[in-house]
Amino acid sequence: MTMHFGRVLRNTVLILLSLLWAVPSWLLLVNAFVPAKEYTGTPHWLPGSFGLFDNFSQAWNEADLGPAMGNSLLYAVVGSLVAVLIATGAAFAVVIMPVRRRVLWFWLIYSGTLLPLQVFLRPLFLSYARFDLYDTQIGMFLVYATISIPFAFFLMRNYATTVPREVVEAARMDGASWWRMFWQIHVPLSKSAMVAAFSFQFVAIWNDLLFGITFSTSDNIRPAIAALSELQGSYSAVGPPVVLAGALLVSLPTLVLFFSAQRFFVNNLKLTR
């Protein structure tokens, strides 16, 4: 009886919560379908006529999203991959290797994520211009990988503390080098955390606007979110449906990533049980 009641309660809470969460996403989807010319100024609740592909193509052309999404993909994949590897290495060193002043190193790296991003704009821009990094891909990689490191490090460090130490000590006894231990033991053990860190940093880089609009102007450098913001500027003549369609289009890669990540997390859950 109580089991039954608990189940009902649980399902009610779940349904309510997911409804609450789904409604804004639903509005986003439905209004991205409204043909631009039929938009009346009030949000639609139900899908009417189908203008999604027209809106897609208008957003795609106006903001030149094709190359921009290619750029973003490159930055997000390479930037977060490099960041996660560097962060995992640093976490491995700080937690497992014999290092002095662990606390100091931890805070040195972690503090990067505590600074407000807007602080970096002016000084970074000036040094970028000085060292010819402004409006280059390498400059974008540099800033994206670096802003991703501190949080990925935090994540990986906390996971490293949960790795059973017996494994490491056994390997040490066998005379394995740190390099080997890192790749053969530590990385495989922290894999799910690494995937999580990668996913978060991928999304963070993909959705960045601040650095995208400040450090790039050329079409072959500018990331997708910066290109998308052209649709939203105060002079822009496209209506909300086109902005939404563009935003939806740009969000597809992150949605796909999370869809597959969710599957990964769930599968892993089963594996350990």
């Binding site: 390479v78 991959l81 280059t136 891909q137 790039s216 102007t217 050329s218």
Partner: peptide, 22 residues
């Protein structure tokens, strides 16, 4: 390692790519 390699070669490639409009 393959991932890292891909990343590094991406970086090397990127070294050549710069804004063509500035």
């Amino acid at each position: 390692l393959a991932g890292l390699g891909a990343g590094l070669s991406g970086l090397a490639l990127a070294g050549c790519a710069r804004g063509d409009s500035t």
